[in-house]
Simulated assay, not measured.
Amino acid sequence: MGKDVDQRLATIMAGLVKHLHQFAREVELTQSEWEYAIGFLTKTGQICSAERQEFILLSDTLGVSMLVDAINNRRPEGATENTVFGPFHVEGAPVRQMGEQICLDGKGESCLFTGRVIDLDGKPIEGAHIDVWSDNAEGYYDVQQPDIQPRWNNRGVFITGADGLYSFVGIKPVSYPIPDDGPVGKMLAHLGRHPYRPAHMHYMIRAKGFQKLVTHTFVGGDEYLTSDAVFGVKKTLIAPFVRVEGGETLWRSDFDFVLAPAENLAGG
Rank of each mutant, 00 (worst) to 15 (best):
V184D: 07
G170F: 11
S175E: 14
P146S: 12
G164I: 00
K123E: 15
Y140I: 01
N153S: 14
V174Y: 15
R155D: 15
F168W: 12
I148S: 02
G182T: 06
F168S: 10
H190M: 14
I171N: 11
V157H: 00
Y141E: 00
G127Y: 05
L188K: 02
D180L: 04
F168V: 10
A199Q: 04
V132F: 02
H202V: 08
E138Q: 13
W152I: 12
L165A: 14
G156K: 08
K186I: 11
F168I: 09
P173C: 11
R151G: 06
V174R: 14
V169I: 15
A128V: 06
V174S: 14
P150R: 05
H202L: 10
P173K: 11
H200Q: 08
R197S: 07
M204R: 15
G127E: 05
Y166N: 09
D131H: 14
F158I: 03
K123T: 12
P150I: 04
T160Y: 03
S167F: 10
P146T: 07
G185W: 01
K172A: 06
A189C: 11
L191S: 10
D135K: 12
R193K: 06
P173Y: 10
H190Q: 14
G127Q: 03
G185K: 01
Y140N: 10
G122A: 03
D142Q: 08
K123G: 12
H200A: 14
H194A: 00
T160Q: 00
D142P: 02
A199P: 06
L165T: 13
H200T: 07
G170W: 08
A189M: 14
G170I: 09
A137V: 08
I148P: 02
I171P: 07
H200Y: 02
R151D: 11
M187F: 06
G122R: 04
L191D: 11
H202D: 10
V132A: 10
V169P: 13
S167W: 12
V169W: 12
D163W: 09
H129L: 07
I125H: 10
A137K: 06
H200N: 13
N154M: 15
R197L: 09
G139Q: 07
Y166G: 07
I130V: 13
P198W: 02
L188P: 03
W133Y: 13
Y140M: 07
M201L: 15
Q149R: 14
L191V: 09
R197W: 06
R197Q: 10
Y140G: 03
A128Q: 04
A162K: 15
W152P: 12
G192S: 03
D181P: 00
